[in-house]
Nucleic acid binder design. Structure first.
Lengths: 219, 219, 219, 219
DNA sequence: AATGAATGAGCCTTCATTCAT
DNA sequence: CATGAATGAAGGCTCATTCAT
């Protein structure tokens, strides 16, 4: 994945880093397909092209490997979403259009294989690693919600939205965006067409703006 | 649920039925706490007060046991929610008040241990039993959404709501009710206070009515 | 076999006897197909048309059932073979022809499904029930060999055969008859044609007569 | 047997080979005593001085272990017998004496624990692994019979024996050697004295030569 | 006596983890 | 450091056998 640019001068430690990354990448793929319990360390090692003990040399045990894998994946997923939300800083003339874009992008991200696997793996291991939810959601859902709340607060102050609790508004907007999507995709087991994704994104924005747009009365 | 009229003097097969039910109940409890892979058939048998082979006499193997357990739990959960939605058939004078009640009841149900465990178990085993999602959601989420869409369609026709796509409206209403709840409860790993539950329910209804209530033009 | 003489007036006990016989018959069929360890008491019960505990009512346990089954089968097989050997009592003019008939009949009996299964089951359980070999062979091979030795002794005395040890001669004759057969049938896993059976029988007799026939000196 | 030239300073894989061989040896001993179904993998591992999973590392499962064990044993048994038959290539002056030696050696081999266990195990598992008979007999009985037929054909051509079908003659000779032996040893459950073994071998050769020796007419 | 249901004991197999090279 | 090989611990499933009806 990232082993391309390695300069020839990278001696020992570079190889180590590459190997660790290769293991984490392989681990995510295997965990994503099998789930935690069914994933074999053996298979992860093979996928990473290393021997089993090498995995243990880098990551203490299966649980550590799982935590590191999910944490890394959470960071990767978050980066994309936070970038998307940046667009709401300067909504331009047409707020609805901008929000549609953002919503659509979030919908797409939500359907992404990596994102879906991350949510699934997290949810699936609540019983075994309850604290993982805090870690992962703290780096994804919660940060997205906070960033969204920030944007909505600004929009409210600038009169683009009616006065409101920005935290609740953000939660509801995200719920409107992702909720129907999860319903229709049956938690990701059914494919959702591109057209449906766009429709759902626009419907979410429409409902949100009807509820939170500047009221005509207050105008 | 179906054991209604059976007199206490039930004949021979009664013992069998009781035992099967005891096994399913015990299985749900154990699966809910441990998850599928970590749940021991041994522990389920003990919890049900029977010997391990008795479990296998009634349910062929661990997978069959799991499927039967989740299916039964789905039916049980659904019954409560469908009853709740009945209240929207005759909303009375104060639609908002009625919807608040319904939303609040759905929130409470959603936080219920059985309901939460059911969702978690289903989601957690997507990889191993992908078809289970269809079965369980078909008996819960989907049916609730359909029932909600029915009610909203009536309310729209009767002028209590503006004209709209009732299916989408139902999805969005349910998303508004449960989405923020899942966010705040961190998928059930944090307790949500009764006050918060009420607040979220009312906020969901408020946003929904702002977006779907009869427009001022029609007033 | 022994159920013949029961008078029609036998009311209750008749059913019992029939059931015991049905169980033994079923047991032989199942044991013959599966072997001892793989044979399920459940399957024997089903084959016999009774419930599992009924089997235990008649035969104490699986081992007892096995012993009774094999003993009964041994008696049945033996009856046929002893009858065959009777023909050697009065060989008539053409000794070779009579011996050919007897040998051929023994070959056919040896290939019979019941006989084969009996030998196989006995041999297969040497380790678990070493004494069964005495019981079964005592009722089959040994008795056949003894009867054959009797006949050969008479034939020797009457000058049809040269003076010899009749016990050894009987063992060798039987070995000549059955040995090549077992080789060619691969212990019963390959079919042996009728023609081959006849050929082998005649070859056995031919070799035996060459070795044990009255010498040219005595002619 | 085949490890001949390997110096004691064998490199790394030597340990693996030794362990595999140790497992096969242990397996044969345990299977020989208990039979397939009753043999515990646990016991085989202990006998081989390794842990249970090590057995599975070398041989996939119990069935594979059984097949490998019997195949190896068949090869070992065969080697001895084929070597014995070589002596018939140059019978020397006294054919009868040479044949007596060979017959006696075959009798001894036939009574050997390994040989006996091999036959028993093969026979005992006909139902479960029918193809094993082909494999084992193909490497033992059939090859012995073929080799014997080769030798007899030569002896017939050279006038030491009368003209005959060498295949049938070989089958009969082997039957004469082993048949009475199996009868008297009750399939190996009774001990046969050394004297009896010699007697039976000589009797077999005597009968064979009476039947197949060059006729007095041709003298 | 016959049966449906229950059970106790036991074994194969798997997999995370650790040595020794 | 990376690896091939070995292992300890554990769990699902089977089946002969026995109650209670």
């Amino acid at each position: 994945m990232a082993s391309a640019a390695a300069p020839a001068t990278g001696t020992a430690p570079r190889g180590r880093i590459d190997k660790r990354q290769a293991i984490l990448d392989a681990a995510f793929e295997v965990f994503a397909v099998r789930g935690y319990a069914q994933a074999l360390v053996q298979e992860i090692a093979e996928q990473a092209g290393v021997a089993k003990p090498t995995v243990y040399n880098h990551l203490a045990d299966k649980e550590t490997l799982f935590r590191a894998t999910l944490t890394a994946a959470a960071d990767a997923v978050m980066d994309g979403n936070l970038a998307t939300l940046e667009r709401l800083r300067s909504p331009g003339d047409d707020l609805r259009a901008t929000m549609n874009e953002v919503a659509h992008e979030l919908v797409r991200s939500c359907c992404d294989k990596r994102s879906r696997s991350l949510r699934w793996l997290t949810y699936a291991q609540v019983a075994r690693f309850p604290d993982l939810i805090e870690v992962v959601q703290g780096r994804t859902s919660v940060r997205i919600a906070e960033a969204m709340a920030d944007r909505l607060a600004r929009l409210s102050l600038s009169g683009h939205l009616r006065p409101c609790d920005p935290v609740l508004a953000a939660e509801q907007l995200l719920a409107l965006i992702t909720g129907p999507l999860e319903t229709r995709s049956r938690l990701g087991t059914r494919v959702v067409t591109k057209a449906e994704m766009r429709t759902l994104a626009e419907a979410a924005v429409d409902t949100f703006l009807r509820a939170y747009g500047p009221g005509p009365a207050e105008a």
